[in-house]
């Protein structure tokens, strides 16, 4: 029994039942498939993180973001600047207690290098309803190249707990044709 020592002194040499052996081979093969699937997707899939990141500071990051906001703001909404940066450009989104700033207006089927960083605690970039979720750290600038493929209005929910105002931290991204 499993609660008593093995009955055989040398149990290592006991033959394995065929059905167990088959299952081990199946499970091992499935593991390999799942392993190589991740590598395959890096080549063939369109949804991968570049893992490009930089050490930064709140000051450095917010200066870059402010420069972008100053240059490309097109209007205001609920006190937030709405920024329409040129396609292909560096786009900055600031996470802070408890706001995402600015509101971004992007063009459909164009690529942008989105930079994410936090001014204070950790936050979670959760783009809805697309459901893309990325962690945002203070002191690190994470770069994700995004290519919105559908026009519309998207919410940016914070999905990393960041204190008492966490559930009010909502940002917005517009994608226009």
């Amino acid at each position: 029994m499993a609660i008593t020592p093995p009955s055989e002194r040398i149990w290592w040499k006991e033959p394995i039942a065929k059905i167990e052996l088959i299952w081990i081979v199946v499970a091992f093969t499935w593991g390999l498939i799942m392993f190589f699937m991740m590598i395959y997707w890096h080549g063939a899939g369109e949804q991968n993180l570049s893992n490009e990141a930089y050490k930064t500071t709140a000051l450095k990051f917010s200066q870059k973001a402010e420069a972008m906001i100053d240059e490309y703001t097109v209007r205001e909404e609920n006190g937030f600047p709405v920024v329409h940066p040129p396609p292909g450009s560096e786009v900055y989104l600031i996470a802070r207690l408890w706001q995402w700033s600015p509101i971004l207006e992007l063009e459909k089927d164009q690529s942008y290098r989105l930079h994410l960083s936090s001014m204070d605690w950790q936050h979670g970039f959760s783009l809805q309803p697309v459901n893309i979720n990325v962690q945002v750290h203070p002191g690190y600038d994470m770069v994700v190249t995004i290519k919105p493929d559908q026009a519309g209005e998207y919410g940016v929910v914070c999905n990393e707990y960041c204190g008492i105002g966490h559930h009010n931290m909502v940002g917005k991204i517009y994608v226009v044709d």
């Binding site: 899939g45 369109e46 949804q47 783009l127 893309i132 290519k147």
Partner: peptide, 9 residues
């Protein structure tokens, strides 16, 4: 599901 979200790289 993953293949249907925005392309990311």
């Amino acid at each position: 599901y993953l293949s249907e979200i925005w392309p990311l790289s």
